[in-house]
Design a protein around this nucleic acid. Structure first.
Lengths: 344, 344
DNA sequence: TTGTAAGCGTTATCAA
DNA sequence: TTGATAACGCTTACAA
């Protein structure tokens, strides 16, 4: 760093290295045709000058910025936060950079986020909340922007959908409650009404009914600890108090358990069996020790990025006409046995 | 959206509106000199065509991209996640977009993140973890990039430092322990060794010693729930078991409390008084009900963005020569009285 | 392999 | 207020 130039460009490096500016560009482009000798001279000059490629200019001409948008609502929630954590990590390792867009989960706020992604020529968008409308997603294709949907329980042409198998989880939960000898089952849900949350409820109820068991459903508020408390209050003051409750998420389950113990003096699992969903860190804390289903968030993130890199590689330049296929990944939710169900 | 053009540029809008492409540019630039009539025609054409400014091109010529980098490690941690949540929200409201960079907290990984920010011509970087080396921060200035340090307990010329007053918190904590009649105080810290964490320990010890009280210090691992458990084990098996423990964060305090209760059958606050730091959501959960100090994260985020917008406005174009001043904000950590200290 | 030159989609300067 | 025109820093045919 000998010359203190305000901002150094490829031309400066070229001058110092005694090559053309295209040589500099090639030296910084993996797989470009440069002789080892010139590449080395370029790199040396670049290091001396402190040169780095301007990603804005590169993105402009390549029409892709190596930015990947993460479209999320309620990002401070444990499950979301850990998903974002893994996604950013794997994206970085793949040479991408994450742009985080907070939505209020309404569909038009998701569409606005997607538009933002287009404006920055993002390589891809990963949607963790809400669903964009179709005209905007079509624009994404036109711009060659990938879309990845995580737990959206929907499919978009040309996109990747990652989902969890709610069925097997419901089955396992039901078996656990039965083995524990629970007589009155309940499902504690929020009013968020997202497809994946609704599905957890629906499959559990369907399965229980097929087994000749009825389940009381209560829904309230957002998918939070506080809602779990309210849900506990509502469910536990019922005439026929449930003794086996499947909570839609761990956050709800934690609130439910705390309320059951501290307000209703109920023992878990002796008086009340509880199962959650997500396997957030708190579910493993010894105050809760909650039996739950693990979302393989690290796996989600890993596979999402892997798919992204793969499709980019496949992209031979010309876009295949016609509506594209969509890819889809379905994972099992692995049960994590802990102490909130008898006989677990 | 009548014509289905692959990707529409300002020229297309200009053609349709019957104006020059500079007119289009001006129509999309707040405060530019356009007659209402042409602006309206441009906007109409733009809407019909589905035109949106290409942020890459705009950023290239303006040399600033409206991107703000968030440089964070361990983003899934409750305190960090909520800080990121508020930052992204306020940034978006101010017309910026957040780029999230995960670091491993080592200083050179922070420097790499900052370099990335420069490559994207970010307007600013907000550093929540680690400290970059000086040569890279100097480059940031040259590029007109602002730096905001949150809880770094350090100052960089031309940057904003946001910090919490550890002193007053230590004072309050000490008073609380004294009022509760604690005899043996301890401080449970991690080995992370970040300035703000170290300061919490140092000020507490200094204050206690001035009051003629000695405090046992134990340090272990990362700043996590699990470390809290280990720390509890180490501290509570000591010959002289502490009965008043100040934990460096709530996460540590939760682990500490759980271990104390479930492994040592200690009652909180009867046998053991506990104070945490951060006021994460879990501290308020009824299993913990932890007395702690609130970090005003929403305020941090709000003021950080406000400062950013203000300094951008002040920037009259020419950079003042010489080393710049730095701005600095110091907040009080408001105590949140809950049930983990006797007589709170 | 290398250099020349033509863009990429904007904004900013300067006359008109 | 408007429209040419020249950047911005880079990549990429196309020739050499």
């Amino acid at each position: 760093m000998q010359h203190e130039k305000a901002v150094v460009s490829a031309q400066d490096v070229a001058d110092r290295a005694g090559v053309s500016r295209s040589a500099v560009s090639r030296a910084f482009t993996p797989g470009a045709s440069v002789s080892p000798a010139t590449r080395e001279r370029v790199m040396k000059a670049a290091a001396e000058l402190g040169y780095h490629v301007n990603h804005l200019a590169r993105g402009l001409v390549r029409n892709r910025s190596s930015i990947v948008c993460l479209i999320v609502s309620e990002i401070a929630t444990p499950y979301r936060a850990s998903l974002v954590r893994w996604l950013t990590q794997f994206l970085q390792e793949a040479g991408k950079v994450a742009m985080l867009i907070n939505t209020d989960r309404s569909d038009n706020s998701v569409s606005a986020a997607l538009q933002q992604a287009i404006n920055f020529r993002a390589d891809a968008s990963i949607i963790l909340s809400g669903m964009p409308d179709r005209t905007i997603t079509r624009q994404c294709y036109k711009h060659g922007q990938r879309i990845i949907l995580i737990n959206r329980d929907e499919a978009l042409p040309g996109s990747l959908s990652i989902n969890l198998d709610a069925e097997s989880a419901a089955e396992t939960a039901l078996m656990a409650f039965q083995r524990a000898g629970c007589r009155h089952l309940a499902f504690a849900n929020s009013l968020a009404g997202t497809p994946s949350l609704l599905k957890r409820e629906a499959t559990f109820i369907a399965l229980a009914e097929r087994a000749g068991l009825s389940v009381t459903v209560e829904r309230f508020g957002t998918t939070s600890y506080e809602s779990g408390q309210i849900l506990a209050h509502r469910l536990l003051t019922r005439h026929q108090r449930p003794d086996g409750v499947f909570c839609v998420t761990d956050l709800v389950a934690c609130g439910f358990m705390d309320e059951a113990r501290h307000r209703f003096a109920l023992r878990v699992p002796e008086d009340l069996c509880l199962i959650g969903f997500d396997n957030i860190a708190q579910a493993g804390w010894s105050s809760y020790h909650l039996t739950t289903f693990a979302q393989p968030v690290e796996q989600f993130a890993h596979d999402a990025v892997k798919w992204l890199m793969k499709t980019e590689e496949d992209d031979t330049g010309f876009t295949p006409q016609g509506e594209q296929q969509h890819d889809s990944l379905l994972y099992q939710a692995d049960v994590v046995w802990r102490g909130s169900v008898r006989g677990g």
